[in-house]
Each structure stands twice: as C-alpha cells, then as structure tokens.
C-alpha cells in the first residue's frame, strides 16, 4: 500500500468514525430527551415511572409477570409501586433495588420462583432491558458489565442501548398506552370467556410436571440475594421475599428447599404457592401461573394482611 492510498484510506476511516460518533451522540441525547417524557409502556415508560417515584413510595415490589399481574399496590397499606415485568429475574430486580434512595425507610418485596432460584444455568441475562440506561447510571453500567462481556460497540455507539425500542418510544410519546398518573405498576388480567374455556380444557389435561429430587441454589442468584440484603440492611429498608400463588403447585421439595435456604440466609420469606388451595376458584386464574384481576385483588389483600399489618 503506498503512502497516498494509506493516507486517503485512513482519512476515510477517520471521517466515518468521527461522523458516526457525533451523529450517534446526537441521536442518543435526543432519544434520552424523548424517552424521559414517556411514562407509559412496558419497555421504557415503566422504568422511567419507577425512577420518578422510587424516592417517594413506601413499598416497592419486584419480580416477573407473576409480580406484575398479582400485586395491586393500592391494596397495600402505604404508597406503593409494582415494578414487576415479564421475564425479569433477580439480576434486573437487584439492580433496581440498588437504585432506591439511601436511608429511606421502605418495604421491598421480591417475588422469587423456584424455577429461577434453582436454575443452574442462570446467567443474569434478564438485566438486558436496562441497557437503555447503560450510560446514564453507574449502578446499571456496573451491573450490566458484570453480566455481559465488554461490548466495545455499546461503549462507542451509545444509541445501541435503544436498539429495538425506537418505534415503541415514538408510539408511546404520541399515543401513551395508559394514563400514568393513575398507574401503580399493576397490570390486571381480565379474562374473557374464550381464555377461560382454554384454561378449563387445559385443566382437563394438564401438562406433566417433573419434580426434581434435589435443588441447588444458583451461585449467581445467591450473590444477588446477598447484595440486596446488604443494601437493604444498610439503607433502612425491610426486605421480604415471597412466592406468589400457583393454581396447583405439584412439586413441594423446591418449596421446602427455598424455605430452608432463605432461613439460613436470614431472609423474611413467605410462601404463598398454595394460598388458594383450600378455596380455589377458576375465576381467580387466567392460567395455571397467572392470577386474574379477581384473584390478584384477593391475593394483594392477603399479602397486605401478612406483611404490612404484621
């Protein structure tokens, strides 16, 4: 390669790098401005809403869809916000818990399901939706770097954090999904007749559950639990672990093991898996793991009686 070619090639590469870097930052900060105004929608709005209210609420609940659809914060004694969302596990929850204000008295409720607690392959990948705030929060950056290997592209092109979310942002900016002023993070499930019929048919021939003989707590899961326990103890928060109800919780060894593990780790833990067992109704359920609004309201009252009034 001669010097002239080398020079012009390097120049082209440099131009592309500089221009893309600058344009990326313009896009990134514009999307930040837009995103900050969005307080509805599961991908971005709910996270923004949480960040807005996290310093003022007394009770925050974390977990997956079984938190999101099962706990109505308005049924709890105190102002609350439900930060549960589909497919989230402890990495996502622990990161958000670490964003809670220091030295403010708060009740932190985390729903834990044995499927995740004892998953030997648990890798913390559920933290992924927080990438959107990778460059805006040291806590989030640290936690994401801990789960994913170093991503030079994400560190050069910040807008990569908005991957796949741009259309949703615009949609929720112009047409908000709901009125956030009356939203507390709880998404009720109203079951129609077709869904109920599907569930009835499912119950006639339920899927076979294979119960394991042994359950081992995942190391990564344990480290997150240790960290949030330390954070809550230090910052005047009461941390409670719960397991939300199931329609028919066949396996029991996992519940026993969870109870034993959390006792050893000195967590306050309540297992509500069978809370409806004695008085179960199909109207309480959308499917075998998700409560309908009717069931969720009832469960929220039970939870409140157990926790808040205790």
């Amino acid at each position: 390669m001669d010097k002239i070619n080398l020079k012009s090639t390097l120049k082209l590469i440099l131009y592309i790098l500089v221009v893309t870097y600058v344009v990326d930052k313009v896009i990134y900060f514009s999307l930040n401005m837009l995103s900050d105004k969005i307080l509805s929608g599961q991908a971005v709005g709910k996270l923004n809403h949480f960040i807005t209210v996290k310093d003022s609420v007394d009770i925050v609940t974390f977990g997956n869809s079984r938190t999101n659809h099962h706990i109505n914060p308005q049924k709890l004694s105190g102002s609350g916000f439900n930060m549960g969302a589909d497919a989230r596990s402890i990495a996502f929850c622990a990161t958000l818990i670490k964003l809670l204000p220091e030295n403010k008295e708060q009740l932190v409720i985390v729903n834990v399901d044995s499927k995740n607690v004892f998953d030997p392959k648990y890798s913390g990948i559920d933290i992924s939706p927080l990438r959107i705030r990778y460059h805006r929060s040291k806590v989030i950056k640290r936690e994401i770097d801990r789960v994913f290997s170093f991503d030079p592209i994400q560190n050069f092109y910040w807008s990569k954090g908005y991957n796949g979310k741009v259309l949703g942002l615009f949609k929720n900016y112009f047409v908000p999904k709901y009125d956030h002023t009356t939203y507390y993070g709880y998404d009720p499930i109203y079951v129609n007749e077709t869904q109920r019929e599907i569930f009835r048919n499912f119950l006639k021939n339920p899927k076979r559950v294979e119960c394991k003989e042994e359950y081992v707590l995942s190391d990564l899961y344990k480290s997150y639990l240790d960290e949030i326990k330390a954070f809550c103890t230090k910052n005047n928060k009461k941390l409670v672990l719960i397991t939300a109800p199931f329609y028919d919780d066949v396996c029991k060894k996992d519940n026993q093991k969870m109870k034993q593990v959390f006792e050893e780790m000195q967590f306050e833990y309540y297992d509500f898996s069978d809370v409806f067992k004695e008085n179960n109704k199909i109207e309480y359920w959308k499917d075998d793991v998700h409560l309908s609004d009717e069931g969720a309201q009832l469960f929220s009252e039970i939870l409140n009686k157990t926790l808040v009034k205790k």
Partner: peptide, 21 residues
Amino acid sequence: STVKLVTFATAIIMLLNLFYS
C-alpha cells in the same frame, strides 16, 4: 464521493445500532 460515502455509512451504522436483531 467521500461525503456521500460517509453519509451512507453513517446512516447504515445508525440503522444497525437502532434496529439490529
């Protein structure tokens, strides 16, 4: 031209960042 090439490259790289699957 260099300007057009850089513009095209920038547009594609931004699309890659925002919409890759």
